[in-house]
Amino acid sequence: MAFTTSSAPTVGFDLDMTLIDSRPGIHACYTALAERTGVHIDADLAVTRLGPPLEEELAHWFPAERIAEIADLYRAMYPAIAVAATPALPGAREAVAAVRASGGRAIVVTAKYEPNAKLHLAHLGIEPDAVIGDLWAEQKAQALREHGAHVYVGDHLGDIRGARAADAYSLAVATGPYAAGELRAAGADAVLADLTEFPRWLAAYRAEPAAPAAPDARDA
């Protein structure tokens, strides 16, 4: 795979566990959903499996014929329960701002329901140029290609697959369920400990004739 450095790159970011720590809000929403439906949901376990679409998690707790109904209910409950409870991860605002300050475009490509993704970003004052939701793993390549993304930043193995499918540079952050070594083994081109390291990485990316190696996060 060949990477071409751009003086004004388009950078895609994942949302959950890349820009935001969505565990508190999602935990609260699953707890409320269990109370509402009378169905046991282990919210502690569910928040260790963030990344894939909501329907995949609901399938652990509800029969197949109820998944669509329960997903709609969860998404309707989500804004009032999860948004205010969810903080930005360290460096998230600064990372998006760094891309835009460089003259590039920052987009968010996420598996999360798009209206709720936009609510999170607005609440936290994170201002990307575009938000595209409801895409997971290789599906993310659709939006990355459409927007001409040079780089995709994410915490999940599915994010690496999405970047690869889009022929984009895969920059991983070890802020989600995978340690740095696992992200590297899965094919990430570089790994950061978190987004506080991103502005320095971006400056190097813009300066070099080919995308540079980033300082690898410590294995955890």
Rank of each mutant, 00 (worst) to 15 (best):
R105G: 06
R105M: 14
A106M: 15
I107H: 14
V108F: 07
A111M: 09
K112S: 10
Y113H: 15
E114R: 12
E114P: 05
P115V: 11
A117V: 11
A117E: 05
K118P: 04
H120F: 15
H120R: 11
L121A: 11
A122L: 08
H123F: 14
L124T: 08
G125V: 09
G125R: 03
I126D: 00
I126R: 00
I126S: 01
E127G: 15
E127S: 14
P128D: 09
D129L: 06
D129S: 10
A130T: 11
A130F: 14
V131A: 10
G133D: 05
D134K: 05
D134N: 15
L135G: 06
A137K: 03
A137T: 15
E138R: 06
E138H: 07
Q139F: 09
K140R: 12
K140I: 04
K140L: 00
A143H: 12
L144N: 01
L144P: 10
R145G: 12
E146Y: 14
E146L: 14
E146S: 10
H147A: 09
H147V: 01
A149R: 00
V151W: 00
Y152N: 03
Y152F: 14
V153G: 06
V153L: 12
V153M: 04
G154R: 07
G154P: 10
D155S: 13
D155A: 04
D155R: 07
L157I: 13
G158C: 13
D159Y: 07
D159Q: 07
I160G: 03
G162D: 13
A163Y: 05
R164N: 09
R164L: 09
R164H: 08
A166K: 04
A166N: 13
D167F: 05
D167Q: 12
D167I: 09
A168Q: 02
A168K: 05
Y169A: 06
S170M: 08
L171V: 05
A172G: 13
A172C: 12
A172W: 01
A172S: 09
T175C: 07
T175M: 10
P177F: 02
P177K: 03
P177G: 03
Y178F: 14
A179I: 03
G181A: 08
G181L: 03
G181E: 06
G181H: 10
G181S: 10
L183T: 00
L183Q: 03
A185V: 04
A185I: 07
A185F: 01
A186W: 01
A186L: 02
G187Q: 08
A188C: 11
A190Y: 02
V191E: 04
A193C: 00
A193K: 04
A193L: 08
A193M: 01
A193T: 14
